[in-house]
């Protein structure tokens, strides 16, 4: 399992008629159990753990704008 940050495509969500109340369900249907449901609803960004092989599957999903591994930042 790898920790990732999944950014949903807001235009695509709108096109498919997925509103904020249903976004958690959609994320779960993609195998994403968001650690912070509030951030998912507000920013359409889900921090979650996924299996390595799910990376490509998520990237190919039109609802997903980006999938990135949970990277490290530094005090600068």
């Amino acid at each position: 399992m790898v920790k990732v940050n999944v950014t949903f495509d807001r235009d695509e969500l709108r096109l498919q008629g997925i509103d904020d109340d249903h976004l958690s369900e959609v994320a779960e249907s993609l195998g994403l159990k968001a650690f912070n449901p509030g951030a998912l609803k507000r920013f359409k960004v889900a921090c979650a753990e996924v299996a390595d092989e799910d990376f490509k599957r998520l990237r190919n999903n039109p609802l997903v704008a980006d999938v990135s591994e949970d990277g490290i930042n530094k005090a600068i």
Partner: peptide, 14 residues
């Protein structure tokens, strides 16, 4: 140590 994960930063912003 001065480092942190993106996910923790996103939590902090929220």
């Amino acid at each position: 140590q001065g480092s942190g994960y993106d996910s923790d930063i996103i939590d902090g912003i929220y």
